[in-house]
Nucleic acid binder design. Structure first.
Length: 272
DNA sequence: AAGCCAACCTGGACGC
DNA sequence: TGCGTCCAGGTTGGCT
């Protein structure tokens, strides 16, 4: 569910409500996430103040004095800023109580998410973060795409590799390729410099538009921001999830193919 | 050694 | 109504 625009939308809506507040208590549930620290360690951030929340790719880093909470939403994760006294929703794995009656709830039915508390100085060397490539929103995408010159992997797959470009998921990888007029199956190393430049620009504009729309909330209502509000970029999707439907530009039916086990979508006329 | 593939887990949509 | 099958915004470890 959550790719860069969704994670960034959550980050901003959380900051609005929680920045500068002190942590009063922390509660973790028994069910483990893909990666999670034990309840004992989480307790050590009680008393800390939330100075800032930063984002690296799809990860959020909560700066808590000498500590840092690193969160990843996986496929089904939600972060909600709730008022104390509100019901605890099913699949809530972590609750952090802040001054002012605010609580941060991490909810994740499929439990592919990550929630770890690190010492602040451990953050940059923590392996999942250390391995991330340039950020899709403000990194040097031209250089990252040029580094794929030897790759024979389909460009859609290469765009999902977080070690090259961090932040794209299946929706925005497909959407950016549609904007750039590039078929998802084209080998990454076969793109000309001109096409790489067009793709870099398409990634930037796609993410910017999605961010302006507050992210993509599909029909199942999966993604919501800290206040529980969905985004409205779904109505702007050119190809993702639209197989069999007409291309918005030329009218031809959108095709779906499976690459590396995951759906890829494209217009057979507009994308070569 | 790059690049597939299944696995992790739950819920929702669909067909019979 | 119910049950079975398929699919999903991500990441990773193990295989070729």
């Amino acid at each position: 569910m959550p790719e860069l625009p969704e994670v960034e939308t959550v980050r901003r809506s959380l900051l609005l409500r929680l920045q500068g507040r002190q942590i009063l208590w922390v509660e973790t549930s028994a069910a483990t996430l893909r990666q999670g620290a034990g309840a004992g360690r989480w307790r050590s951030c009680v008393g800390a103040y939330l100075a800032d929340i930063t984002r690296r790719g799809k990860y959020l880093v909560f700066e808590l004095d000498d500590w840092a909470a690193v969160l990843h939403l996986g496929m089904s994760g939600r972060l909600l800023a709730r008022r104390s006294g509100e019901a605890v929703l099913p699949h809530t794995h972590l609750r952090i109580g802040f001054e002012g009656g605010w609580e941060l709830h991490f909810i994740d039915p499929r439990r592919f998410g990550v929630a770890v508390l690190l010492a602040a100085r451990e953050v940059t060397s923590w392996v999942p973060l250390a391995q991330l490539g340039v950020d899709a929103l403000d990194g040097d995408l031209e250089a990252a795409l040029a580094s794929l010159a030897d790759s024979r992997a389909p460009i859609r797959n290469a765009l999902l590799d977080q070690r090259r470009i961090a932040g794209l998921g299946n929706i925005y990888a497909n959407e950016a390729l549609a904007r750039a007029g590039i078929r998802p199956t084209v080998p990454a190393g076969r793109l000309t410099p001109a096409r790489r430049a067009r793709l870099a620009e398409a990634i930037r504009s796609t993410l910017a538009d999605a961010l302006a729309a507050g992210g993509t909330t599909l029909a199942d209502g999966g993604f919501v921001d800290a206040a529980g509000e969905g985004g409205y970029f779904a109505v702007s999707l050119a190809v993702y999830g639209r197989d069999g439907q007409p291309c918005r530009r030329c009218g031809r039916a959108i095709h779906r193919v499976v690459l590396a086990g995951r759906s890829a979508y494209y217009c057979p006329r507009c994308q070569r």
